[in-house]
Simulated scan of single mutants.
Amino acid sequence: MKSILKLTLLLSVLGYTPLMAQDLHFPERNEPWKVAEKNQFIYDLQQLNKAVEFAKANEYSGSRDLRRAILEGFEREPFHEILGPTKKRGGPAGLILKDGYVLASWGDTKRVDMTFSVTKSFLSTVAGLAEDVGLIQDTKDKVANYVWDGTFDGEHNAKITWEHLLQQNSDWSGELWGLKDWADRPPNEGGLDDWKFRKLNEPGTVMEYNDVRVNVLAYSLTNVWRKPLPMVLKEQLMDRIGATTTWRWYGYDHVWTEIDGLQMKSVTGGGHSGAGLFISTEDMARFGMVFLNHGKWDQQQLVSPEWIKKATQPSVPNVNYGYMWWLNQKGPRHWEGVPEHLFYAAGFGGNFIVVDQKNGLLIVTRWLEPSKIGEFVKQVYEAF
């Protein structure tokens, strides 16, 4: 105990205060987030307000009718159509938290909206929970050893591991729920036939953002858990962090699978054909706090710190991407003037959960023009 006290004193003298779980605020269910008291933290309020005004002034330029925004945003995809629920969105909203205390908030933070590919970070977490309890032994295992119904048959697909699916570099080839992998986000250059009949990349070598393959991961995890993934997320995480009962995780309307004699919906990992996670800003913040606190909600370990560390490691083909979390490493998606240790969830229309474990900073922002996120986060940091 004396050595710990000496170390704490030394770190304090050096100007570093270690972040301890007891220093963080974790609101009870239905309890509002506490607003930081005056002088509780040292920051430039005027500069922080400037950042908030920037977020409010740079609303996502797409239609608030998300059905229309989706169809316009993905109009170049062959056969693209809305297959799952959508919802008209609200205006810009967000929270900036320091150690779990609110420094700033704007918009309707209780409103439930679509969150698109932020869903992927929740899906990744369901995979982490499966590894934590031993349902998946290791993410480097081949998925065909767990899912044997033909989804991973063939010379190419048989090589695919859980890690390849999580890092979106599997190049899984096939059709799921009537959707063909090659029809999802085809490249701008070359003809569609060139893309359709291309030579497949070796799993683990090339990242390709592709929702069909993400949905293959969701389907595979449904087989591993043997229950609907929204139920898994609710029981294993969301109930334990005091999330509201308002969030929903949808699949496509026609997608049902049978496991153990029970019909269940296989959910999506995004919303570019509808569906995905519908959630409030405040519940997104609760989820983010688990990752800020290395997998703990208050003193309760919900996700292993080993998983979070693994999930936020750069993948080989994309230094800015881990297990469905984006990383602020030096690379194509690097935000200048912002710490490189940040990681974040990101979704269509400007939905973000930004996590800074070292500084106890959590940012949730909704409906920010996506090209403005780097500048917004930089302005937030300029307040400190």
Rank of each mutant, 00 (worst) to 15 (best):
A183S: 14
R185N: 15
R185W: 13
R185L: 15
P186L: 11
P186W: 13
P186N: 08
P187R: 15
N188H: 15
N188L: 13
N188R: 10
N188V: 15
E189D: 11
G190K: 06
G191A: 15
D194P: 02
W195M: 11
W195T: 13
W195L: 03
F197C: 01
R198T: 12
K199V: 14
L200P: 04
L200W: 07
L200H: 15
L200V: 03
N201W: 12
E202K: 15
E202F: 10
P203E: 11
P203M: 04
P203L: 02
P203Y: 09
T205S: 13
M207L: 09
M207T: 14
E208P: 02
E208H: 06
E208W: 04
N210Y: 06
D211W: 00
V212L: 09
R213I: 05
R213C: 04
R213Y: 00
R213P: 00
R213M: 03
N215R: 07
N215C: 09
N215V: 07
V216K: 01
V216A: 09
A218K: 11
Y219L: 07
Y219W: 11
S220E: 10
L221Y: 02
L221E: 04
N223W: 11
N223Y: 11
V224H: 02
W225G: 08
K227N: 03
K227P: 11
P230L: 12
M231F: 10
V232D: 01
L233T: 03
E235V: 06
Q236W: 03
L237K: 01
I241V: 01
I241P: 01
I241D: 06
G242N: 12
G242C: 12
A243T: 08
A243D: 01
T244W: 09
T245N: 08
T245F: 04
T246V: 06
W247P: 12
W249I: 07
W249D: 13
W249R: 02
Y250C: 10
G251Q: 00
Y252T: 01
D253M: 00
H254W: 02
H254R: 15
H254G: 09
V255R: 05
W256S: 13
I259Y: 09
I259V: 05
I259E: 09
I259P: 06
D260P: 00
L262I: 08
M264V: 14
M264Y: 03
M264S: 02
M264E: 10
K265H: 10
T268R: 03
G269E: 08
G269K: 04
